[in-house]
Amino acid sequence: MMSFALTRLLRAFATLMLVITFAFSILRLSGDPAIAVLGPMAPAAALNAFREAWGLTEPFWVQYSKYVLSIFAGDFGDSMRDGLPALPLVLERVPATLSLTIPSLILTLTIGIPAGIVAALHRNSLLDRTVILAAVAGFTVPSFVVGLVLVLIFSVTLGVLPSGGQGSWLHGVLPIITMSTVSIGLVARYSRSAMLEVLNAPYIRAASAKGLKWRDVIRLHALPNAILPLLTIIGLMVGSLIAGSVVVESIFSWPGMGRLLIISVAARDLAVVQCILILITVLMVCANLTVDLLQAWLDPKSRNKAHA
C-alpha cells in the first residue's frame, strides 16, 4: 500500500510537471509573446521591457527553470490587463465558482446515484426506461442549449427567475440546474451500469441461492460492492463540473473563475490563463489521487491494476 501510494504520488507530480511544461511550451510556440500581447505596432522600448520582464532574452533552459521555480513559488506573473498579480485575481473568483459547483455536485450525487441504482434494481421497468432516456438526453444535449432554453422559459417567457448576474439566491437557481442536468444523466447512467454489473456477479446469485431475502442480498452484498465503482464517478464529476462551469458562467454572466478564463482568453491575458490552467490541474490531480488512494485502500485488487 505504501509503495502504491508513493508510486501514485510520483505519477501525480509527473503529471503536474507535464502540464506546466505544456503551458510553458505553448507559451513559446505562440511566437514572440511580446508582439502577441502588445501587438506589432508597439514601440520597441515597450517590447524590450516586456521581453525583459518575462525573461525572454535568456537561454531556453534558464527560462524554463525560472518559469517552473516561479510557479512553485506561487508567482504566475501579473495580469496584462490591470497589472495586478494573477494568482490573487484568480483566487478571488474561486468562491463564486464553488457556490455553483458544490450545490451542483450535491444535487448530482443525491439524484443521480439513487436514480441509477433504483433503475438497475427494476431493470426494464418504466422507471428504468425513463432514467435511461434522461441519461441519454443529458449526454447529448449540450449544456449551453439547456441553459439558454431554461432562460427562454423561466426568464423571458415566465419572468420568474433572473437570467444572469449574481444577487439573491434566485440568481443561482438556473445555473445550478443547468450544470446538474448534464451531470445527473452521466452519473445515473454510470451508477446503473455499475449496479447491474454487481447484480450479475456470481456472488449475488450465490447469496440469493442460499435463501437470503432479496432485500438483504441488496443491502449486504450488492450495495457495498457497488460503492467502489461509484467512487470513480466523483473523480469524473470534478472534471465535468469544472468544464461545465466555464460554459454556465459564460451563459449566466456569473463572476467566477470560468468566466474569468473566457475573458482572459479573449484578451490574451496569458498570465491569468496559465494561472487558471495550473490551478485546475492541481485540483484535478488531487481529486484523482484521492480517488485512486481511496480505491486502493478499499480494494487491494486495484493496486496491481494501476501498475499494469
Binding site: 502540464v19 505553448i26 505562440s30 472534471g239 482568453v265 490574451r268 490563463v273 490531480v285 484523482n288
Partner: peptide
C-alpha cells in the same frame, strides 16, 4: 500512459481555451 494521466488532469475545454489564448 502519460497521456492518460494528462487527460485525466485537464478537461478538454480548459486545455482548448488555454491553447486558443496562446496560439489564437
Amino acid at each position: 500512459l502519460m497521456f492518460v494521466d494528462f487527460q485525466a488532469a485537464l478537461p478538454f475545454i480548459i486545455m482548448a481555451l488555454a491553447v486558443s489564448a496562446f496560439v489564437g
